[in-house]
Computed example of a mutant assay.
Amino acid sequence: MAEKVIKKKYALVTGGSRGIGSAVCKQLAQDSEYHILINYNSNENAAKATLQEVEQAGGQGTIIKFNVTDSESVKSSLDAWAEVNKNAVIEVIINNAGITKDGMFMWMQPDDWHNVINTSLNGFFNVTNHLIQKLLVNRYGRIVNMVSVSGLKGNPGQVNYSAAKGAVIAATKALSAEVAKRNITVNAVAPGFIKSDMTADLDEKELKKMIPANRFGEAEEVAQLVSFLVSKKASYITGEVININGGIYS
Score class of each variant (00 low, 15 high):
M1V: 12
K4V: 09
K4I: 11
K4S: 05
V5I: 14
K9M: 09
Y10G: 04
A11N: 10
G19F: 13
C25I: 09
S32H: 12
N43L: 11
N43G: 02
E44S: 10
E44W: 12
A46S: 14
A47R: 03
A49I: 10
T50M: 07
L51M: 11
E53I: 03
V54L: 08
E55M: 09
E55W: 12
Q56S: 05
Q60F: 05
G61M: 04
T62K: 11
T62Q: 15
I63Q: 09
T69F: 02
E72L: 13
V74G: 07
K75L: 11
A80H: 11
W81Y: 15
K86Q: 14
A88N: 05
I90K: 01
I90L: 05
E91F: 06
V92Q: 05
G98L: 12
D102A: 09
P110G: 01
D111P: 06
V116P: 02
I117H: 13
N118F: 02
N118G: 00
T119Y: 05
N122R: 06
F124T: 15
L131A: 03
K134H: 04
L135D: 02
L136M: 10
V137A: 00
N138V: 00
N138T: 00
Y140D: 10
R142A: 00
R142V: 02
M146Q: 03
V147Y: 02
V147F: 01
V149C: 01
V149I: 12
S150Q: 04
G151H: 03
K153R: 13
P156T: 08
G157N: 01
Q158S: 00
N160T: 08
A163C: 14
V168H: 08
A170K: 08
T172P: 06
S176L: 05
A177S: 14
E178T: 11
K181C: 03
K181T: 12
I184F: 04
V186S: 04
V186F: 08
F193C: 05
D197P: 01
A200T: 02
E206A: 14
L207N: 11
K209W: 12
M210Q: 15
P212V: 04
A213F: 14
N214G: 01
N214V: 00
N214K: 12
N214H: 07
R215L: 04
R215M: 06
E218G: 01
A219H: 05
V222E: 11
L225G: 00
L225F: 06
V226F: 06
V230N: 03
K232Q: 15
K232C: 11
S235G: 09
S235D: 15
S235T: 14
I237N: 09
T238W: 07
G246D: 10
G246I: 04
G247E: 13
Y249E: 08
Y249T: 03
